[in-house]
Amino acid sequence: MTDHSHDDDLKHADHAMPKPIIYTATWIMLLGLLFVNYLQSQYLDLGAFNIVIALVICLIQASAVVLIMMGVNFHSTLVKFWALVGFVWLMLLFTTLGDYITRHWIHLPQGW
């Protein structure tokens, strides 16, 4: 029987991670995008595009956090796939909005 408390069990994984400056740059970018979002909401009225701009900025921020800070970009394909699963679920979930949006496009008879 193998004794697993032995120091032979100490291994070096095939790690990979970016230099700290990449993390710092990501942090500054996230704060910058946050203030862009804030300033746009306070001083620039783009009508129906307000929410589009806000969501695009959010998606860029979330992608930066997932890919760089959570390190998905530096992990294996399996981890990348698993991370993607959650966002595919979100997309499927939000397609149900299509039902609510289009429900009154067709005028159905009132019935008896």
Binding site: H4, L10, K11, A13, A16, P18, K19, I21, F74
Partner: peptide, 21 residues
């Protein structure tokens, strides 16, 4: 700065149910 760091990491203990770290 875009190059990934691959050295200088602390070692880890391998649990018996896994083949490699």
């Amino acid at each position: 700065i875009f190059e990934l760091q691959r050295e200088g990491f602390a070692s880890q203990r391998l649990a018996h149910q896994f083949e490699e770290i």
